[in-house]
Design a protein around this nucleic acid. Structure first.
Lengths: 149, 149
DNA sequence: GGCACAAATAGGAATGGTTCCTATTTAGTC
DNA sequence: GACTAAATAGGAACCATTCCTATTTGTGCC
């Protein structure tokens, strides 16, 4: 059984990939990849900005977007768009199912596999998938508990 | 085997529901539900505005959004948010899978069933789903053909 | 260590889909 | 036809994201 990589290992891989591709390892970029390696709550651009400004107070909004866009283009992170919420960013580039709480905004990963493979979709419809999103909207355990009283 | 309702039947149901709930049947609303009953391409707000202005030239942007919001709140249509595209509106409120072409923007329905029921998700994770979205992004048949030459 | 240069950043302006505001208009009812 | 609450038109406001550009910074080289 293959264990999943630690935050430190994930971060090291990202640093290596960026260096290999000739990207400069600026303090802003290192802060962003370090954050995304550890924070698995799929933070949005505003969250990321707020958090990295704790160590780098003058980071600009445009730098965060520019960096996220670069990481996305390089396939190192995944950008997720959600219903009634800002975009979120996820270090997990594999396809998976998200459970999105309409009350607290938390996003969990669903422990189930992709139900139709790209090949199955292609075969059935002649549509060639390159990406997918699968999301459930509702209320998470703790928000249901609060509502019940 | 139950046949699917005709556009005329869908429209009649929407009119009936609105009247029952005490909504006024204005010319703008009738134009919008008539369009959504016939147009199964999941049009966006801008499309809808453009099309209904052919018969009602002074319809405002805000009316279109206000009406779509009302239909959505009443559960008569479904609002869909997409990656890199404006919102779209769909008369089909049942859960289904969309195939979205990254080239021409066309959205097809995938002829497969919902892979995890709400009950299954609830049971597995303690998360209570109320809605879902399942989408594949890629290239449709005709766009692949064009690209091949 | 210091230099040169392209790449990256900060800060602010611009964008554009959507929402908000409110005076005017209208569908439904009697 | 008149009344009234609901709906509409038009434009302003909003706000996440993108664009613009002068300044700063990492990297490679000496």
């Amino acid at each position: 059984m293959k264990r999943s990589p630690t935050p430190r290992e994930i971060e090291a891989v990202l640093r290596k990939r960026l260096r290999e591709k000739g990207y400069k390892l600026t303090s802003q970029r290192l802060a962003i990849i370090s954050l995304l390696s550890k924070d698995l709550t799929h933070p949005g651009a505003a969250d990321i900005l707020k958090k990295i400004r704790k160590s780098l107070p003058h980071v600009s909004v445009s730098t965060v977007y520019y960096t996220l866009d670069m990481l996305k283009r390089e396939g190192l992170i995944q950008e997720l768009e959600f219903y009634d919420q800002d975009n979120r960013y996820d270090i997990n580039v594999s396809n998976h199912i998200n459970l999105i709480c309409k009350n607290c905004g938390k996003i969990e990963d669903f422990p189930g596999k992709q139900p139709y493979t790209y090949a199955q979709v292609r075969q059935k419809t002649d549509f060639q998938p390159l990406g997918m999103r699968y999301e459930y909207y509702g209320y998470c355990k703790s928000c249901r508990r609060k509502r019940a009283g």
